[in-house]
Computed example of a mutant assay.
Amino acid sequence: MSKKRPSLASDEAVRRTKLITSSLATDTWFALRARATLHAANHVVSEDRFNRPTPFGDTFNVTQNSLALTVALALARLFDVSDPDRYPIEQQDKASIPVLAHLLKRGDVQDSLAKDARGWHPQLVDGAELGEASFRDAFSAALGLYETYVNSQNYQDAQSRLRRFRTGRLAHHLFDNQPTDLPRFDDLDALADFARQFVQAAVLAVEGHDRDLSHEEEIKSKMDRRFWDAALSAALVANDKAPSVEVDDKNTHN
């Protein structure tokens, strides 16, 4: 059993909280962008006008599979945490949701962030009170969401499947310990939706601005659908004009 590590100093805990929040905002947006692109591709390709044979089908399948793996890996990173019995979660050097949530639970971190929040609106008469109230609401929302995640069997099952897949197939290929209960698209969507809500609340609590990731993802999705419509339509036009191409089945199913 490892020795108990000393608790993080207050200044270091606050520093990590701010750094992780910023990193999580970037990483979560990356995961949401990849998910939006994947969903848009699936939506457009399912339309009747694209329901016909084409030699470009395998190219699309490879692209679709690559996007799905990208989403899975991005989400696995957002929820990454090592064995808490060996390494206290708040002391782990991972920019992940569990680490940030544990840091936010610290009273000294909350006091420091509340003090910062009182300077968010210096131009307003009651700006200090408004800033601290905004922090308290966002902080409570973030931790409330995290408690729901921790206590939800559905969330925990989804995360467990994703973690085993990440460890056994994405980060490594463990030939004697391959995952059998693979993550599902519903798992990825549930975890992505949770990450979006948690990070939005955390960013507001720590940085003082409301980043509406849901709205940003909606805008991204509309643009992605336009892209896939243009790309797939152009592929079919090119296929109609080009001579037939023999596809080697042995090379397309590896």
Results as ranks from 00 to 15, higher is better:
E216H: 10
N51C: 09
V206Q: 02
A205R: 04
V150E: 14
L124V: 02
H215A: 08
P88R: 03
Q91T: 11
P122N: 08
S160V: 05
E218T: 05
F194K: 05
W120Q: 12
M1H: 11
Q156N: 03
Y146W: 13
R161N: 04
V62M: 11
L24R: 01
R136A: 13
P183F: 02
I20K: 02
S214N: 11
L124T: 04
A171V: 06
A133F: 10
N151H: 09
A25I: 08
L32D: 04
F56W: 06
L182E: 09
T63N: 11
G57I: 02
A202S: 07
K3F: 05
R86S: 11
V125F: 11
A34P: 01
I89L: 09
A68T: 08
V99W: 01
D189N: 15
N251E: 12
L69Y: 08
P84T: 10
E90C: 08
M223P: 03
N61R: 15
S96E: 02
A34V: 07
R163W: 04
R52C: 04
S23K: 09
V44I: 14
S221R: 08
L213K: 03
V14W: 00
F79Y: 15
N42R: 15
A202D: 02
T17C: 03
K220P: 01
N177L: 05
L69I: 08
W228N: 00
L145Q: 13
R35K: 11
N154S: 15
K220H: 12
N177H: 14
L170A: 10
L188G: 04
K18G: 07
D108W: 00
A190L: 15
Y146D: 12
T54Q: 04
S152D: 07
D116L: 03
F135K: 06
A36E: 09
W120E: 14
Q200W: 09
A74C: 06
I97R: 02
R226A: 15
D108T: 00
A114K: 11
K105I: 01
N254C: 08
F185S: 15
A68Q: 13
L124H: 07
E147D: 12
L188Q: 07
G168T: 08
S140F: 00
L32G: 03
V14H: 02
A76S: 15
K250Q: 14
A36M: 05
D85R: 10
R77L: 03
L104K: 00
A9I: 06
A138H: 04
L204H: 14
K241T: 15
R169F: 10
V14Q: 05
N151Q: 12
E207F: 12
N151F: 02
H172A: 12
A205D: 04
T148S: 13
L19H: 12
D189V: 15
P53C: 01
Y149A: 04
V199H: 07
E90N: 10
T26N: 13
A101K: 03
D58F: 08
R77D: 10
A34W: 01
R106H: 02
R35S: 09
D137C: 06
A234P: 06
T63D: 10
E90M: 09
D181S: 02
D189C: 13
P88I: 01
R211A: 14
D181P: 00
D58N: 12
R169H: 13
D229F: 10
R106S: 00
D80H: 03
Q156S: 03
V81H: 06
V203Q: 11
A190P: 05
A242F: 09
R35Q: 11
A68Y: 12
V99I: 03
Q92I: 06
R136L: 08
